[in-house]
Design a protein around this nucleic acid. Structure first.
Length: 590
RNA sequence: GCGCGUGUAGCUCAGUUGGAUAGAGCGUCUGCCUCCGGAGCAGAAGGUCGCAGGUUCGAGUCCUGCCAUGCGCACCA
């Protein structure tokens, strides 16, 4: 038996050494400009409209809205609809008879249909003229910045709140998932016509901040020679020690560590700055930072408490003030204000309610909170508080997008994340090790409500086979065609080009995939699910690679080259648009 | 025990809102660089969609009940 040939991938000469390769993640993110949205009418929209018209001539209700879908099996054609089946009941006829009547009633040529067949129990399968279909690509070339944009939001304001970490430590991998999700959801909403503000809520008041101050104090005093006594519930991370050292250096007058307020302010400022740097490294930019402490100083908390008391939904028991959240679906009532014996403070959810009142009053009639699933119990409480106030806020306000936990594997073991114990993997660790684009893509390629196992070692060691490179490579390849052909890609138009020559199966596949982008964006935006964009990118990249491998663009007969240049340009622009929604760079070469 | 999630290929996960023969990546096999970049392409193997009922022309998808699993159930945040 002959020795197996070594696999090509193992041959170093086939690949450039990774060290020499410039990480595309180093590229700065391209800001998304926001031109006016256009509701581009795709051929699918036209087909749907024609189907509706035909259905109404058969007596279907006016609001009939046929569902078109891509048949899994391409031999079934380009589009399929179950319209005849859904009309069977209202019309009292057999599905196949209705299908036949629909075909007869349609003006097929006007929507590019060259064949219509009835299949199975009453499916209608349509085959489109290849050139007619491919002309859809021209909308991409003509206005790449508006491709896939919709105007669902009509410019209404929406606030997306995410990360919102306590300034008590660096941002860990769970915050990273939130940052990637929140930012991508925001962009998706912008893409569909909403006026979006990204907001970071700082819990810079309350018990955890007091713990932070005391932990800092303990370290300051330890520097002065006292034994280190971190208070119960305090923070143990090394970063507290570093903050204490800087505090001592900058506050020689308080070497004894007596000014607790000064240490608290110092530590909060230092950690906020660190978190800002983390988000900067991740390429996330917030429009507003809202401080919990400001809700106390500007009277919002008091106003909210008075409002709740006036609503009649509160009562006192054992010296504490309760809100009867059970009136609004909670399983038990919640304490608003602790009894004097427990310190007499407000519990966290009171400022939370006050905060959400400000969102409403600041003019956001839609609010989306991206949070870890471990905080889901706050949803009922916050909404109950807003309802109890009875100030016109709708019951479902605010919306929540919950994401499941991120578990981190390192060295084959799960790293228990605990800020207090001082063991965690930070967002910046991940970015430094596998690159910003890869981290973002990994966070976004899955649904938020499935758990995410982030194996740091695996992510680093396999970064060469990362799917994000596969997608970015498809983009770079299309750019390469123009580079080699010495063609200015921006000058490519469909002027005088017969797109009917794009008749190869791989071409039709790619055309269809690209034209599915607007529907994908709509689905992703409606459901606040950026992972749909990630999935579309992967499929589009695959279709692009396949086409590229099978068919040449340059050096073909002129009519073919010109049509294929249109397809290459559309592919490049489409992938770039998807990448930008996810906050990833679209490198022209890798 | 209660609430919110999740069980789909060896592993990690999609599944177009109820459609036709359930998909991808990684991993495992087999081929393919004279070529616009092989960071790629073509193909193979791999499935009782957790289990059992129900709804209907039709269920991975919807309803019920179990089983497994993650998170949460504080006068913490």
């Amino acid at each position: 038996m002959p020795a197996p040939r070594p696999r090509p991938r193992a041959t170093p000469s086939r690949r450039r050494a990774p060290q020499r390769r410039r990480r595309p993640t180093d590229a700065r993110p391209v800001p998304i400009s926001l031109p006016a949205s256009t509701d581009a009418v795709t051929h699918a929209d036209a087909l749907r409209a024609e189907l509706s018209r035909a259905a109404r001539t058969l007596g279907a209700p006016d609001d009939v809205s046929p569902i078109l879908e891509r048949p899994r099996d391409p031999s079934f054609g380009d589009w399929a609809t179950n319209l005849a089946m859904t009309l069977a009941k209202p019309l009292g006829q057999k599905p196949r008879d209705i299908a036949e009547a629909l075909i007869a009633a349609m003006d097929k040529a006007s929507v590019g249909v060259i064949a219509a067949e009835i299949a199975g129990p009453g499916f209608l399968n349509f085959r489109l003229d290849p050139g007619f279909q491919a002309r859809g690509l021209l909308t991409i070339l003509e206005s790449p910045d508006t491709f896939g944009r919709l105007d669902i939001g009509h410019g209404e304001r929406v606030v997306v709140e995410f990360v919102s970490a306590n300034p008590t430590g660096p941002l860990h991998v769970g915050h990273g998932r939130q940052a990637a999700l929140g930012d991508a959801i925001s962009t998706l909403l912008e893409y569909t016509g909403w006026n979006v503000d990204r907001e970071f809520y700082y819990n810079d008041a309350g018990a955890q901040i007091a713990n932070l101050a005391k932990s800092t104090q303990a370290q300051v005093r330890a520097i002065g020679g006292a034994p280190l006594e971190i208070p119960e519930g305090g923070y143990h991370g090394d970063y507290i020690r570093e903050i204490a050292e800087r505090y001592v250096a900058e506050h020689p007058d308080d070497a004894a560590g007596d000014n607790l307020a000064a240490m608290q302010a110092f530590a909060v400022a230092a950690l906020r700055h660190e978190q800002d740097l983390d988000m900067q490294a991740f390429g996330v930019k917030f429009d507003t930072y809202y401080l919990e402490s400001s809700l106390y100083t500007d009277g919002s908390v008091n106003k909210t408490v008075e409002g709740l008391k006036a609503s009649g939904h509160t009562y006192e028991e054992d010296g504490a003030l309760f809100l009867r959240t059970t009136d609004f679906g909670d399983d038990k009532d919640r304490v608003m204000k602790k009894s004097a014996a427990k310190g007499g403070d407000y519990t966290y959810f009171v400022p939370d309610v006050a905060y959400h009142v400000t969102k409403w009053e600041r003019g956001y009639h839609r609010a989306i909170n991206v949070q870890g699933a471990d905080h889901h119990s706050t949803i009922t409480r916050v909404r109950a508080g807003l309802q109890a106030l009875n100030i016109g806020i709708p019951t479902g306000y605010p919306d929540y997008v919950l994401h499941q936990m991120v578990t981190v594997m390192k060295g084959g073991e799960e790293v228990k994340i605990s800020k207090r114990a001082g063991s965690y993997v930070t967002v910046r660790d991940l970015i430094d090790e596998v690159g910003r684009d890869a981290v973002r893509y990994f966070y976004l390629m899955r649904k938020g409500d499935s758990q995410l196992v982030f194996d740091v070692d695996l992510a680093r060691s396999q970064s060469e086979e990362n799917p994000v490179y596969y997608v970015q490579m498809a983009h770079a390849r299309m750019c390469g065609i123009f580079r080699v052909g010495e063609i200015d890609a921006t000058t490519v138009t469909g002027q005088g080009v017969d797109l009917g020559v794009l008749s190869e199966p791989a071409e039709q596949e790619l055309v269809k995939q690209l034209l599915d982008f607007p529907a994908t964006v709509k689905g992703a935006a409606d459901n606040l699910e950026p992972h749909r964009i990630a999935a579309w990118l992967l499929e589009t990249a695959r279709a692009g690679h396949t086409w590229y491998h099978k068919h040449h663009v340059l050096g073909e007969p002129e009519a073919i080259t010109r049509a294929r240049l249109v397809l290459a340009r559309a592919t490049q622009l489409g992938i770039a648009a998807g990448l930008r929604i996810l906050g990833l760079s679209a490198p022209e070469r890798m």
